[in-house]
Design a protein around this nucleic acid. Structure first.
Lengths: 177, 177
DNA sequence: ATATTATGAACGATCGTTCGTTCAATATGA
DNA sequence: TCATATTGAACGAACGATCGTTCATAATAT
């Protein structure tokens, strides 16, 4: 996908059409315009979250689910294209309300699932009683993506970064015996 | 500044010149091109970090410095324009090496100072012995900026978010008595 | 034969950049 | 001191390229 190489605004509709194996005019038979292509991509991202939702919906103890999720999501973010795409969508979301809506929706699907895990962890006495489980969940995602961006920019593989990140998250959330 | 309203690639050189109170042609007497304008802006961001460096260079106990820094940096990020500008530069950094260099440099000035605070906190027994103080510092910055972006996108004021964020950071780093 | 899909030339707009020109300020020579 | 030469900042018209989009036409399927 060419938004990754050049960025959304740098990519011409002709590039998009060519890379999609479609003629320029025909692209407009499938999309109302360039903007809708980005919307479509943002919607496709939603599906990518399903494996992680599956992990989070498990009923095993919260710390175990949390660790498994962190590893899995980190692995997903180890692919720079996923990080860059998220960044691309993030920076469009600032100015385009419908992209923002999609972005927040995608994000919510993750954080909501994570929130219930955190809540269960708290009632089970496995996790610290954080003041706001939803915000804590959002912070977890943000830490992971922040680390991933840093790994892309510094060209340090995610595997060299994730250990510290996991340590940071778990030490904030886990109840200490 | 107009990169904030429309984004770097959406903003024409004519807009930049007009907003700067300079004619189109004259802008090219001061900058080699549009790219150099962004470079200049990225370099100006460096100066904005100086107050925070001052805070971090204090010799008071690490937890105190840490809290003060978190509050101050959060206040800075409470202004959406600062968040958006950072995001704008971030997404350019992915594809433009010189922007990336500047971005990493700016970031390092913060994280390096924060790292020494964390190290001092550990030796003083105030902070948990994190596996990698530099990475821990980078994570602190990333959490703060992640929260700030969320606050912009969800139109929730930073003041409503920072409490949880601070709690998240401190519970990860502070030694528990 | 009719409906649907695919095509790329063409459009007007805007892009980043260049360039010839103007002109006030400064330096130089008398 | 006055006249002349030199400088470089400021300007905006103009350039070629590319932008997103439209549309008349051609191919294909029903």
């Amino acid at each position: 996908m060419c938004f990754l190489e050049r960025g959304y605004h740098q990519t011409g509709v002709r590039d998009i059409a060519t890379r999609a194996g479609v003629s320029l005019g025909n692209l407009y038979n499938h999309f109302r315009g360039k903007h809708d292509v980005l919307v479509e991509i943002a919607m496709l991202e939603r599906r990518e979250m399903e494996p992680f939702l599956k992990i989070l919906n498990s009923n095993t103890p919260a710390p175990k689910v949390l660790k498994k999720f962190i590893r899995a999501y980190a692995k997903y973010l180890a692919a720079p294209e996923n990080v860059i795409l998220t960044l691309e969508i993030s920076s469009e979301a600032v100015r385009q309300p419908d992209i923002a809506r999609l972005f927040v929706e995608n994000r919510s699907s993750l954080t909501d699932a994570l929130e219930t895990v955190v809540r269960r962890g708290i009632t089970d006495g496995d996790l610290r009683a954080v003041p706001d489980p939803l915000q804590a969940s959002q912070l977890v995602i943000e830490v992971l993506e922040g680390s991933a961006y840093r790994s892309v920019l510094s060209e340090i593989p995610m595997t060299r970064v994730i250990g510290c990140t996991e340590d940071f998250i778990l030490n904030s959330l886990l109840m200490r015996q």
